[in-house]
Amino acid sequence: MDIDVKKIANLSRIRLTQSEADELAPQLNSILGYIDKLSEVNTDGVAPTAHPHDVAMPQRADIATNPDRRDALQKVAPRTESGLYVVPKVIE
């Protein structure tokens, strides 16, 4: 099976040049070809593992602990104004 690199790149929000896409396609196909090895394994009735240990999610007291650190957190943003993140216009 051949991967549609342009489509996956679009889903990933990465703009690839044609030459990048041409270079990545055979590499991704070889990786996926290797991954197809998984189809050899009989997994009927096997539960999937998302977390390596069988433990319950811990809980803690519902107390707010985060101080207001907006200025420190926004200092590292590419562009802010009046405490808001500025992005290109979305709605005409």
Binding site: I3, V5, I8, A9, L11, S12, R13, I14, R15, L16, T17, E20, E23, L24, Q27, L28, I31, L32, I35
Partner: peptide, 19 residues
């Protein structure tokens, strides 16, 4: 994302997005 990520990171993101 095209400018910021190197080629190995792009390969992994694309592999994951595909899967």
């Amino acid at each position: 994302r095209d400018e910021g990520f190197g080629s190995e990171v792009k390969r992994r993101i694309l592999t994951g997005a595909f899967a």
